[in-house]
């Protein structure tokens, strides 16, 4: 039996339930597997350290750990080196954008975001690439 290629796993974190569902739909559209959904930063960290997903899509402002802090923890954890973070945020200014990238996020999307664009981006991120960026 041929093995189906492993779907990349995704954990979503946002305190707004509707956004979580929206992201879940985008994940499905992109052909990835949603393995966990968290409503606050602490829950998100527990899920991420337990499940070690390929991608984390997280809001920046959440109760408990903020999205930036979550990102920094993931970066700092050796066992999570394969996990990449996409930040969603309502903050529009350059400073926030840079802070997000500094914290180690691979991408930064501004709310309101287009689900289609998110799906496309997720597909891009999980394409096997010939050269991994250092």
């Amino acid at each position: 039996m041929t093995e189906a290629p492993q779907k990349a796993t995704v954990v979503v974190a946002d305190d707004d339930a509707d956004i979580r569902v929206l992201v879940g739909i985008a994940v499905r559209k992109s052909g990835l597997e949603l393995v966990g959904a968290a409503a606050d930063g602490n829950e998100a960290w527990q899920l991420v350290s337990a499940l070690k997903p390929d991608l984390v899509v997280t809001d920046v402002s959440m109760p408990g750990l903020s999205g930036l802090e979550l990102c920094q923890r993931i970066r700092a954890d050796g066992e999570l080196s394969g996990t990449r973070v996409v930040l969603l945020s309502a903050a529009v200014d350059e400073g926030a954008h840079l802070a997000g990238l500094d914290a180690g996020a691979i991408d930064y999307l501004i709310k309101p975001f287009s689900p289609r664009e998110l799906a496309e981006r997720l597909v891009q991120l999980t394409q096997p690439t010939t050269a991994e960026p250092c």
Binding site: D16, D18, S61, A90, P112, S114
Partner: peptide, 23 residues
């Protein structure tokens, strides 16, 4: 900052789901 976040998040849902409906 709070207002910005609180207003944009629901708008995000509105526009997101409208787009899903369209697509």
């Amino acid at each position: 900052g709070l207002i910005s976040h609180e207003l944009r998040t629901p708008l995000s849902s509105i526009l997101g789901y409208l787009e899903l409906m369209r697509d």
